[in-house]
């Protein structure tokens, strides 16, 4: 459990974390079209089992319905969205403008990311922006909130009150700066961290130890990222094809060891076991469950992981 920290925004996520509860977030990818029902349906599936819902921002550089509009849809449903924003597609004018747009709907959480390179997506011949990087995005949003100022120095009327998060990958290369990079994000002003999917729990625990050694777990809330495996094929793909992903051989073996029709169940089991083990780890402030196009399984994982019912932030 985390000790109580000062609450700086009206974010429900922040409130729950500050109260020392293990938080649960999940994420939804917006559709490749303008049908908002698709995003609403996904949210309906998980809304009672999570505290906040991330909306991805043109992930893997494939053009989709925008994160901000999707967040507004969730907000209008009375839910708590986490606006993901990548610096790939926006310069500092667009970034600040979108932040204000989000704040105007009282969106209260934001995750600051670099974004995948556009070569992976449907616009590989497009220009990229990268006016700021993810660290500088964190700094920008914090400045807008805490100082009430634009980057240009002018005053913001009704500054955005966003709880500011960032991503961390405990497994990526180069390994020697994994903890230093987190320290840098904390110094930039990140208040919560959602990690890359964790399959190698031993290595994650080792990383967390180094994080604790530097006291970083007291500066940022660390939400452990988990993605249930649907099949042995997915495990192999994640292991071999996705950069910065560490899927140990025994996980692949375990998935391959059961018949194909039982593999989804095994994947959920692994995910639940991970929740149960990491719940006890000092410095883990919650979980970010990314069930990719498998949102209906999130409630089951949350319940079996002993994270249900969710606390009522208004009662805190």
């Amino acid at each position: 459990m985390n000790q109580t920290r000062a609450v700086k925004t009206d974010s429900k996520l922040e409130k729950i974390l500050a109260a020392g509860h293990l938080a649960v977030t999940s994420e939804c990818g917006p559709p490749r079209g303008s049908d908002s029902d698709l995003i609403k349906k996904k949210a309906e599936l998980i809304k009672n089992h999570v505290d906040a819902i991330n909306i991805t921002d043109n992930q893997t550089s494939v053009t989709r319905l925008c994160s901000l509009a999707s967040c507004i849809h969730l907000k209008l449903m009375g839910l708590e969205p986490v606006l993901q924003m990548v610096v790939r597609d926006r310069n500092r004018i667009a970034i600040q403008s979108d932040v204000l747009g989000a704040a105007s709907f009282d969106i209260r959480n934001m995750l600051c990311l670099s974004g995948d390179h556009q070569r992976f997506g449907d616009s590989s011949q497009g220009q990229n922006v990268f006016d700021l990087d993810s660290m500088q995005l964190i700094q920008t949003v914090r400045r807008m909130r805490d100082e009430g100022k634009f980057l240009g120095g002018d005053e913001i009327k009704r500054p955005p009150k966003l709880f500011v998060g960032a991503a961390a990958n405990p497994f990526a290369d180069p390994f020697e700066i994994r903890v230093r990079r987190l320290a840098k994000k904390a110094a930039a002003g990140a208040e919560f961290i959602q990690t890359q999917c964790i399959y190698n729990l031993d290595r994650f625990e080792e990383w967390m130890k180094q994080v604790r050694d530097r006291g970083l777990h007291e500066k940022v809330y660390i939400l452990a990222g988990l993605t249930p495996l649907k099949s042995a094929g997915m495990a192999k793909y994640m292991k071999n094809r996705v950069p910065g992903m560490d899927v140990p051989d025994d996980v692949v073996k375990r998935m391959s060891g059961v018949p194909k029709e039982k593999q989804p169940e095994e994947g959920i089991k692994i995910c639940v076991e991970s929740v149960q083990r990491l719940k006890e780890l000092e410095g883990v402030a919650g979980f970010h469950i990314m069930a990719i196009e498998w949102e209906e399984k999130v409630p089951e994982i949350v319940e079996m992981g002993g994270l249900y019912p969710r606390p009522n932030p208004d009662a805190i």
Partner: peptide, 11 residues
Amino acid sequence: KRLLNGPCGGS
């Protein structure tokens, strides 16, 4: 990505 505070997670 011209990151001044890199690397990204893709390294």
